[in-house]
Structures are given as C-alpha cells and as structure tokens.
C-alpha cells in the first residue's frame, strides 16, 4: 500500500485574533475490519487512522478519536483562533502504530 500522504490547508498569513479555517486530508483506506475478501471470504483486518491531532505552538487545539465509520481518506475541517506566528503540527496515528505528521507555518501580524 502506498504510504499515506497528508495534505493540509492553512492560510500563510492572518491577522492577530483572526479565526482561520484549517482543512486536512490524508490518503488512507480506513479498512473497517468488517469487509470480507471477495475471493477467500475471510475478514480483512481493521486498519484505520484512530487518532488525529492538531498542535499549535505546543498546545493541542483540536483532536479527534476516529472509528471505522469514518470514510476512506479521512478529511477534517475546523477553526483555530490565531494570536501569534508559529507552527501547526498535524499528526495522524495508524492502527499499526505508525504516526504520520505534517507541519505548516503561519505568519500572524
């Protein structure tokens, strides 16, 4: 399977105190663990992203606990009020323990 590829949209600039919208997506099959292999009839083991988190300058501002009912290529959008320039770090935790992450910078004036 291809390595999951995270994609994040964060504005490059914002005014102090502005509420910005962040959109994230990661390519991942989100195998629910309920599907059967059409040829062998065996259940395909569950493999999903079970946790997503967004950390802004060291503080966790948004996180999500996910279940198999989340679609493949999980997408999230949410808002953050920005007070200072800095970094957003996004992390996705896979069932197999892998962690995928992405960092975006923002300039706040």
């Amino acid at each position: 399977m291809a390595q999951p590829k995270p994609r994040v949209r964060v504005p490059k600039k914002a005014d102090k105190g502005e509420v910005i919208e962040i959109k994230t997506l990661i390519s991942h099959p989100m195998e629910s663990g309920q599907r059967k292999d059409r040829k062998t009839g065996e259940l395909i083991p569950r493999k999903i992203i079970n946790k997503f988190a967004c950390v802004y300058n060291g503080n966790e501002v948004f996180s999500a606990d996910l279940h198999p009912a989340i679609s493949a290529n999980p997408y999230f959008s949410f808002f953050v009020k920005v007070e200072e320039s800095g970094e957003f770090e996004f992390t996705w935790v896979d069932d197999d323990g892998s962690v995928y992450s992405q960092v975006s910078k923002i300039t706040v004036s």
Partner: peptide, 17 residues
C-alpha cells in the same frame, strides 16, 4: 468519531465524512 475542542478554536465547528 469524537472531536475534542479547546477555547482556541474560536468557533465550535468541524466537518468530516
């Protein structure tokens, strides 16, 4: 899913599929 918010979100809004 469960979404965890904080005061720094500004709006209590989120979307997914």
């Amino acid at each position: 899913a469960s979404f965890n918010f904080s005061p720094s979100n500004g709006y209590a809004e989120a979307a997914t599929r």
